[in-house]
Lab assay of single mutants.
Amino acid sequence: CHSECLGNCSQPDDPTKCVACRNFYLDGRCVETCPPPYYHFQDWRCVNFSFCQDLHHKCKNSRRQGCHQYVIHNNKCIPECPSGYTMNSSNLLCTPCLGPCPKVCHLLEGEKTIDSVTSAQELRGCTVINGSLIINIRGGNNLAAELEANLGLIEEISGYLKIRRSYALVSLSFFRKLRLIRGETLEIGNYSFYALDNQNLRQLWDWSKHNLTITQGKLFFHYNPKLCLSEIHKMEEVSGTKGRQERNDIALKTNGDQASCENELLKFSYIRTSFDKILLRWEPYWPPDFRDLLGFMLFYKEAPYQNVTEFDGQDACGSNSWTVVDIDPPLRSNDPKSQNHPGWLMRGLKPWTQYAIFVKTLVTFSDERRTYGAKSDIIYVQTDATNPSVPLDPISVSNSSSQIILKWKPPSDPNGNITHYLVFWERQAEDSELFELDYCLKGLKLPSRTWSPPFESEDSQKHNQSEYEDSAGECCSCPKTDSQILKELEESSFRKTFEDYLHNVVFVPRKT
């Protein structure tokens, strides 16, 4: 048989008469490798580009789960590009990614509803959504962080984005990388972005840091009482949809009607710091009717980097990364020049730590249904340095008659930039024990000054392991946590139920 035959053949030295091919099969003959313009397919066939392209389009058009959109890589027609490569849609070739590779997620039936953290986790790592997304989240724990972890990498949506009755959302900033909504599939009414009845939605994105392009379709905003109209108009300008909307697409009466839409800028007039305090004062603000001013709200939190936005980490279910302080308005003076500047002394802060701070007014709604208010920009203030805590785990070892090696770990709280350490030492008198000992005694162990690591005695271990207080009263049991108490109650309830079950099964009433 021919060298490319495997198993047997019907005619000697003829690659077209093989029972099976050793390498690849091409047009009725066995070959060692697939010549151009053919590609290896499933490690035994040679196919042309049209064959591989037909497989790709067949799966793409069917949208069946589990099928493969075949691509070409290293002269092979394979189910998908290997790690580190992405497909070129024009020629199906796998090309190296520039940075992290995109991950295209194809949605069944063309859309997916995100109504819980669990459903959001199914899209973790996706960068391109081939379909439409509907966000409908009523509640949950730590929602802002969970949504950002699972949806934060999405850069492109081919269909539309719909935010509907998501009472738990305060902001859409968890879509931190969303840059493009194509609108290839539109919501009824030709809408590519749809926001309806979101009672706590206050911000779409921080438009000073976020760009969003909507290729096709219109915007729809109705019944978002805490979303200011200025935020919607800003989205029109940034996304390129200005002029597409009709009169009733953006409701003037049901958007922002319960919001404090600040239209003035508060400026800080005085800032002073110490290692654990920050004193702030800002310019006074009074609405047209000074009785509408209820006070100020001061927001602050630790910020290692200057990239904080107002609604980071917030949701309507209680999660809030900001510390909020309510401040009463100052006494009002008739003389504008003698107006008191409101302020606040922030206490209990960490030394040498940068804080993000902003302040906003708290006002009631005027009778004319106009909203007044003022808010400052987010500023960054760093507390002063102070003395560091003591170095940890000092170790001293003498390696000769004239040297001592000293080692330690950095302090747990540096409280500033540590530039150097101060080492103090003092000579001590020799131990009298060394002169009084009889060095001729056998088995004498000389006193040693070398360091030995501390260890816990058996008594201390027994005390720590004991669940009861000892007789001397030195140790006591740790208080039980809520989960331990709940577990004990469940076990007790189970024992009672099981005992009742045994009584009912074992003891049967005697027939009379």
Score class of each variant (00 low, 15 high):
Asp312Gly: 10
Thr215Trp: 02
Lys277Thr: 15
Thr213Tyr: 04
Gly348Phe: 13
Gln203Phe: 02
Asn334Val: 03
Thr383Pro: 00
Pro342Val: 05
Lys350Leu: 09
Thr309Ala: 07
Tyr300Ser: 10
Asn136Ala: 06
Asp206Ile: 04
Thr371Lys: 08
Ser260His: 09
Met235Ile: 14
Met297Trp: 15
Gly152Val: 02
Gln121Ser: 07
Ser208Met: 03
Asn263Tyr: 12
Val359Lys: 00
Glu111Val: 05
Leu180Gln: 12
Asn334Gly: 15
Gly125Tyr: 15
Gln339Ser: 07
Lys103Tyr: 04
Thr323Arg: 06
Ala303Thr: 08
Thr113Ala: 13
Leu169Phe: 09
Gly318Arg: 12
Asp328Pro: 14
Lys267Val: 10
Ser389His: 11
Thr371His: 12
Phe290Thr: 04
Ser116Tyr: 02
Glu155Gly: 11
Glu187Asp: 09
Leu108Gln: 06
Glu368Pro: 03
Glu231Lys: 11
Leu219Trp: 09
Ser366Leu: 02
Leu294Thr: 06
Leu229Lys: 08
Lys226Arg: 09
Ala251Asp: 06
Arg347Thr: 13
Val381Glu: 06
His210Asn: 09
Ser171Gln: 11
Phe268His: 01
Glu187Cys: 15
Gln306Arg: 13
Ser119Tyr: 10
Ile214His: 02
Asn224Val: 01
Cys105Arg: 01
Arg202Leu: 12
Tyr167Ser: 01
Gln121Glu: 05
Leu107Ile: 06
Leu147Tyr: 04
Leu204Gly: 05
Asn334Cys: 10
Leu219Pro: 06
Lys350Arg: 15
Lys177Pro: 01
Asp257Glu: 07
Ile163His: 00
Tyr160Ser: 10
Leu298Lys: 00
Phe193Glu: 00
Asp276Val: 01
Lys409Ile: 15
Pro411Asn: 01
Asp393Leu: 15
His341Ser: 09
Gly373Leu: 13
Ser173Leu: 11
Val238Thr: 08
Ser116Gln: 03
Arg244Cys: 08
Val128His: 15
Ser398Asn: 07
Gly313Met: 15
Leu133Asn: 00
Trp282Asn: 02
Ala168Tyr: 10
Ala303Trp: 04
Ser376Arg: 00
Tyr270Ser: 06
Leu293Ala: 07
Gly159Ala: 06
Ile114Glu: 00
Glu262Arg: 10
His341Cys: 08
Leu107Ser: 09
Asp206Ser: 10
Pro342Gln: 09
Arg244Gly: 14
Gln121Cys: 07
Glu155Lys: 15
Ala145Glu: 10
Asp326Asn: 11
Val359Trp: 00
Gly348Lys: 01
Lys301Ile: 14
Leu280His: 00
Cys126Pro: 14
Glu283Gly: 03
Pro225Arg: 04
Tyr380Arg: 02
Glu236Asn: 12
Glu231Asp: 07
Glu146Lys: 13
Leu201Tyr: 00
Ser319Tyr: 06
Val363Thr: 09
Ala356Leu: 01
Tyr305Ala: 07
Asn142Leu: 08
Gln203Gly: 00
Leu196Ile: 14
Asn320Ala: 11
Glu368Cys: 07
Glu237Trp: 15
Asp292Leu: 07
Thr309Leu: 15
Thr323Val: 12
Leu201Arg: 00
Ser389Thr: 03
Asn340Leu: 11
Leu280Phe: 07
Trp205His: 08
Gly318Ser: 15
Asp206Pro: 06
Gln314Arg: 15
Ala251Leu: 09
Ser401Met: 09
Arg370Gln: 04
Ala259Lys: 09
Asn198Ala: 07
Thr323Asp: 14
Ala168Lys: 00
Ile278Gly: 00
Lys409Cys: 14
Phe358Ser: 04
Val381His: 02
Asp367His: 02
Thr241Asn: 10
Asn320Phe: 14
Arg138Lys: 07
Lys301Arg: 07
Pro284Thr: 15
Lys253Phe: 07
Tyr305Gly: 13
Arg165Leu: 03
Gln258Val: 14
Leu201Glu: 11
Ile163Phe: 14
Arg347Asp: 07
Ile232Thr: 10
Asn150Val: 04
Gly295Gln: 08
Trp408Thr: 01
Thr361Val: 14
Asn150Pro: 09
Asn307Glu: 15
Tyr191Val: 08
Tyr285Lys: 02
Ile395Gln: 10
Val325Pro: 00
Glu368Thr: 14
Asp206His: 05
Pro388Tyr: 02
Glu155His: 08
Cys317Gln: 04
Leu298Trp: 01
Asn399Pro: 10
Phe299Lys: 04
Pro288Thr: 08
Ser171His: 14
Asn320Asp: 15
Lys267Asn: 04
Asn190Gly: 13
Ile250Leu: 07
Thr353Met: 02
Asp367Ser: 06
Leu293Ser: 04
Leu133Glu: 00
Lys253Cys: 08
Pro388Ile: 01
Lys407Trp: 15
Arg179Cys: 13
Leu201Trp: 02
Ser173Cys: 11
Ala144Gly: 04
Asn190Met: 11
Asp335Cys: 09
Gly313Asp: 15
Gln216Lys: 00
Lys301Cys: 03
Gln258Leu: 13
Leu186Cys: 15
Gly140Pro: 14
Gln121Trp: 15
Asn263His: 03
Gln203Met: 09
Glu146Ser: 03
Ile135Arg: 00
Lys277Arg: 11
Ile379Met: 02
Arg291Phe: 05
Tyr285Asn: 08
Thr213Asn: 03
His233Met: 02
Asp384Arg: 11
Arg370Tyr: 11
Ser321Thr: 11
Pro351Tyr: 13
Leu293Asn: 04
Leu266Gln: 03
Leu229Tyr: 06
Arg369Ala: 04
Ala149Asp: 06
Thr361Gly: 06
Tyr270Ile: 15
Leu298Thr: 02
Met297Leu: 13
Leu227Arg: 00
Gly343Asn: 13
Gly159Asp: 01
Gln382Val: 02
Lys277Tyr: 15
Ile157Ala: 00
Ala144Phe: 15
Ser398Tyr: 12
Asn307Gln: 02
Lys277Trp: 10
Ser260Thr: 11
Leu362Ala: 15
Thr254His: 14
Asn141Glu: 14
Val128Ala: 15
Ile129Ser: 00
